[in-house]
Amino acid sequence: MILFEEVSKSYYTGQQALQNISFRLEDGEMVYLRGRSGAGKSSLLKLINLVERPSMGRIMVDDISLGGLSERGMQLYRRRIGMIFQDYRLINSRTVYDNVALPLVICGRPPEEVRKRAMASLDLVGLLEKRNYYPLQLSGGEQQRVGIARAVVNRPRIILADEPTGNLDHDLSLEILKLFLRFNRSGVTVIIATHDNTLVSACPRRQLVLESGRLIQDIPAAAPQAAQAGGSAS
């Protein structure tokens, strides 16, 4: 369960990124977070991953109030989240394999398990052959897939995907979407921030639509193509 209660976020620059956002996601739900560039999608995901703290309001994940987490609590909490970053956030001085294995190493998993799971995860995104490459030797889309493999390798309870298909072609986008669906079917909560309409039409789900930091629409899964409002390319 992810619960936002009247959450606002303004950056120290004075930029009001989110205003008075409230919504509730149930466990195992999959939603699209939509809105034009600058609408606040990344900011919202960063609040869930504790990269940023809300200026006002409260965020609950399961029974945890994020505001009251200790340092240690935050570390354990982050390990249960698989975050895919818009800018990939890969470690360029380490191989693809090492990048993907990192969450497992951080959790202190034994080496055989790390190897097995990292290989499986690389296989999922079709990068098994390039596991010994360095991120900068890969194309943008390939780097993005490394980020996806890293996000899912530790079997997270929640996947936060910020523009996960931004650099992928149509077919590959659908492949990745299927991957998310697979995780979602096994009970993982998935939030995908995207301006990619093809994803939404290929697999209609609930949509949260942001505009200038406000939540202007919350479209349930049952109403497929009703949402053209904030959805068009930005």
Partner: peptide
């Protein structure tokens, strides 16, 4: 990145 992934 390590901090983002929950490293101690």
């Amino acid at each position: 990145v390590e901090k983002l992934l929950g490293a101690t």
